[in-house]
Design a protein around this nucleic acid. Structure first.
Lengths: 196, 196
DNA sequence: TTTTATTGATTGACGAGTCAATAAAAGCGC
DNA sequence: GCGCTTTTATTGACTCGTCAATCAATAAAA
């Protein structure tokens, strides 16, 4: 059976499976065996390629962060003015691909991992810094004085909506989340109101 | 040794110990034995009084919710106008007693419990409804049209700041959190600016 | 024959929950 | 007050499951 070059295939299959498994069962207590089974292999093979469960979750986190990062980058290049850049960040944060229940469950799991895994904490801080930086650069050009404070508030609001999504039995529609954020921006920022 | 009427004493000792233990160790993997030891008794006794770990955490949750609820109520009676009521909710949400690291860790734990415990989910929804209701009633009197959307945003912002606090190695000062929220309110609400 | 892929079986640790046993009150009949 | 039973408090030892991680064994490329 050994078709060579299985490693990258197996690794990404496990990463995908980990995210889906977190979303599928309500609990965050997902075992390596469950993930491996979903990815179509034995738990021994999962350990062979990742060494430990912690490393596997870290890889899953890196995967999600990478997806998010590239989507943000793509969305930002087409955004002309600062307000459009803010809109883009919000749109991507709650795009159906990101705001899907299994993604949200994966995020909550990352928060939990970060409690005991140094690497998870590091990755989460990278995400937070990036988000903060993106928001700040746009806000600074609109309201220089208040940019810092508004950045913290918006970032917290995004994370907070994710947490709520992780708890709601009935998932919230992406557009609902976007509306809430947009509405805040409309209220806070000067200039033409009613974006959408 | 059986001094009668130990039950309530033991129960609240365990509840306190659970919260402190969650705050003390970085991980959320807290064992009944650890909690019982901190509360000065055997794990068997903890099980005797609570039946299960899940019940114990639920009791801890009820305890925290009760504290929070009474503080909110107390703060609201002295608040005259709607804006003062909003300020009061924010002040209590980030009062040092609530925003302390062990409290924040306990909250994150509740979110995790809610993934598998029906009762935890119920209690968390009660908290969310209460917070939402309090915010909404105040906002409705200031900006009736936008009250609903603003409520969701503010509630998410509060939860989001808690999550960040749960991850930061260096805890944020309560006043910093309050400033961020107040700043948003100042920007969004009509009338005199610069509260605090 | 060396390397890569793969797994069933096993190990070892840990932890929730149970149980039987001990001890000391509180009640109770007298 | 004085024995007796009942109730409450308490724990050490134990059971039972689970799960991450390891290992030895198999197979098929290179």
């Amino acid at each position: 059976m050994p078709k060579l070059g299985m490693e990258p295939i197996r690794r990404s299959a496990l990463v995908e499976a980990a995210i889906h498994e977190l979303g599928a069962r309500a609990s965050l207590d997902v075992t390596v065996s469950q993930i491996a089974r979903r990815a179509g292999m034995s738990s021994a093979l999962a350990h062979h390629y990742f060494g430990s469960k912690e490393h596997m979750f870290a890889a899953a986190m890196r995967h999600v962060l990478k997806l998010f990062g590239t989507e943000i980058r793509d969305a930002l290049v087409t955004a002309r003015d600062p307000r459009a850049r803010l809109d883009a960040i919000i749109q991507v944060s709650f795009a159906p691909a990101q705001f899907r229940p299994e993604m949200v469950a994966a995020w909550l799991n990352f928060y939990v991992q970060a409690q005991k895994s140094e690497e998870a904490r590091r990755l989460l801080h990278i995400y937070q810094r990036r988000l903060r930086s993106n928001l700040y650069h746009a806000l600074k050009q609109i309201l220089p004085q208040q940019a810092s404070s508004l950045t913290d508030g918006l970032a917290a609001m995004i994370d907070g909506i994710y947490i709520r999504q992780a708890l709601n039995d009935a998932p919230m529609a992406p557009q609902t989340a976007i509306d809430v954020l947009m509405h805040f921006l409309d209220s806070v920022l000067p200039g033409e109101q009613r974006h959408g």
